[in-house]
Design a protein around this nucleic acid. Structure first.
Lengths: 154, 154
DNA sequence: GTTTATTGTTAGCCATGCGAACAAATATCC
DNA sequence: GGATATTTGTTCGCATGGCTAACAATAAAC
């Protein structure tokens, strides 16, 4: 006698995902959705920010005076996409568009004082979120995962 | 004497990503963008389909007669999102909404003959895309990556 | 038989992204 | 030096993909 029980008529019909479990993209997507949800719950409730905007802020903070076009290249999006992002961050007082001293076409993105403070606060939340999320993995596994993702992406 | 050369004025100023490289979400996103691009180039050009729609088709094919609400649960999206997806797939002749025999509210999603043929063709393209994409990894690494992603997502 | 829940649908909204077109400013090239 | 290209930020329109809220029809629960 096996451990499998007789299926009852009331059983939810077992769901099949077909080929999907064999595809990396399926698991990549699920992991990302899980991460987004976790971010929204742990960081988003306390700071009104998304992973995307946080990434932009990080790069702006790490490269003072960055022109919008450079940011676009770094984030691998179009220049026109950056306009909206900069509008948002500027409207919230986190960054400023400072006219470049050497090129009158370009705007240098700079964190404001408010922006610096907010970013420091958000970084704490993000690091806590990261620690919480990866608590399921050992440090070695975490590193392995990161490395494999990098190799996949390049 | 080290191997570092004297930075010239014409050098592109080295870009920093701040904290981002320490965050799993950053690498997850990059990997996904890379995968989407690869999918678009290898599958999308030959079949006019996206990873999302392909996933829906897979689940419909693997669960004949699935009601829209069940599909929504399986894909973890809202019922209303499925309406648009089903509209698209139906407009393209790949699936049909068959009225349920036992519940006059629900529509059972079924592949059409065309849909079956198309899906078979697309599956070939997707598997080739997958093989190509993961050629950078050994089979063991591929499996490790999948397992770690699953553990992260649950 | 009345109330509650589920199903599919519509409508409107938001976020993220792209592409095309544009004017201003800068580079390049004879 | 002056014509021609290129770069920069911007706007506008569009597409995708997702959400919520409301609704009518139907089914289930009490």
């Amino acid at each position: 006698m096996t451990a499998t029980r007789k299926p009852a008529a009331s059983d939810p019909p077992a769901m099949s995902y077909g080929l999907l479990p064999d595809l990396l993209g399926f698991h990549l997507r699920r992991a990302q959705v899980a991460l987004f949800r976790h971010f929204a719950h742990s960081v988003g409730t306390a700071a009104d920010i998304t992973p995307g905007l946080f990434g932009m802020l990080q790069v702006i903070a790490a490269n003072p005076g960055l022109a919008q076009s450079r940011l676009a290249e770094a984030m691998e999006v179009e220049r026109s996409t950056i306009v909206k992002v900069a509008d948002q961050l500027e409207a919230r007082g986190l960054i400023e568009r400072v006219p470049s001293a050497v090129d009158r076409r370009s705007h240098c993105l700079e964190l404001t004082e408010t922006g610096r403070g907010e970013l420091a606060r958000i970084e704490g939340l993000v690091l806590a979120h990261e620690a919480d999320l990866t608590a399921k993995l050992t440090p070695a596994e975490r590193q392995t995962l990161t490395r494999l993702l990098i190799r996949l992406a390049e």
